[in-house]
Design a protein around this nucleic acid. Structure first.
Length: 279
DNA sequence: ATGACTAGCACGGCTAGA
């Protein structure tokens, strides 16, 4: 099973690029962020034509997340309130559409668009930290359910120095502050593992390049789009790659897709009753 | 130190992104 994440920076502006990429790559699942469209205007039909069902949580102009899947989408959950129904902070944070999950072939796929934070002196920065604290409460409940879990999306955090093109200059600033990194580490605990880093320890691999300052041409990027796997799925990961070529498209998103390949469903022959195969 | 680009909304410059 291949699962992908892509901040498309408007699903309508990017529709031809997204459908072309889906047709070429045919992942089982693609999670989108920054769809920037009200639910009534979401382009379901373009994805249905390629065999993808859609689960969406959008709003006009800002934010918005969606899960596209060739396999059935089950038990779709919108927002933090799905697991934190009596939490007033969750209700307030859910005004921005940044959280959606679904069970797909027995795997819980949690698609996130973490707030950017703007700058360390902006009101949006404490909002980002409150959002991450709420995510931690949400995750604790999700993990208690015991479903295999993939948590992915645009985290707007470069977790380590090797995830920034210029760590000397950028460390400590927005997306690379110690408080953000600490919040991310805390919610991962020792349960969730960065799929990309299972296969590639080196720096120089980015998922986002600023539109400004010719960042793409100069390859000045950040790795802020992540796929996290729980212990059970980590063992089944066979690869994780960033489709950076997409950033070179005409009128591109500023983010590239990230894709993980899982040997799912697992081969369950081992240790099972051999009689089970001969009913 | 600042701004650079891009998208949405709406049609004039804002907000927001990262």
């Amino acid at each position: 099973m291949r699962i992908a994440t892509w901040n498309v920076n408007s699903v309508r502006t990017r529709l031809e690029q997204v459908t072309a990429w889906l047709a070429a790559e045919q992942p089982e699942v693609l999670c989108l962020q920054e769809t920037k469209v009200a639910d009534a205007l979401f382009p379901h039909d373009a994805f249905a034509a390629l065999g993808y069902a859609t689960a969406i949580s959008g709003q006009k102009a800002y934010n918005g997340v969606a899960i596209l899947s060739r396999l059935p989408l089950e038990d779709v959950r919108l927002g933090f309130a799905a697991l934190l129904p009596s939490d007033p902070v969750a209700a307030e944070l859910d005004e921005q559409k940044r959280v959606i999950s679904a069970r797909i072939d027995g795997v819980r796929v949690l698609d996130l668009y973490v707030p950017n934070g703007s700058s360390l002196t902006s009101d949006k920065y404490p909002y980002k930290l409150r959002w991450l604290a709420c995510l931690q409460r949400y995750l604790t409940l999700q993990q208690a359910e015991g479903e295999p879990l993939v948590m992915l999306g645009d985290f707007n955090i470069g977790p380590e120095e090797r995830d920034l093109h210029d760590p000397e200059r950028l460390t400590g600033g927005i997306m690379a502050s110690e408080a953000e990194r600490q919040a991310l580490r805390e919610l991962l605990g020792d349960q969730l593992h960065d799929a990309f880093r299972l296969f590639e320890p080196a720096s120089g691999h980015w998922s986002w390049w600023d539109y400004r300052s010719a960042a793409w041409e100069r390859d000045r990027g950040w790795r802020i789009d992540h796929i996290y796997l729980d212990d059970s799925l980590q063992e089944l990961a066979t690869g994780c790659v960033i489709h950076r070529a997409v950033r070179g498209n005409e009128q591109p998103s500023d983010h590239a897709p990230v894709v993980v390949n899982l040997a799912w469903p697992p081969d369950d022959d081992e240790g099972d009753d051999p009689e089970a195969e001969w009913p």
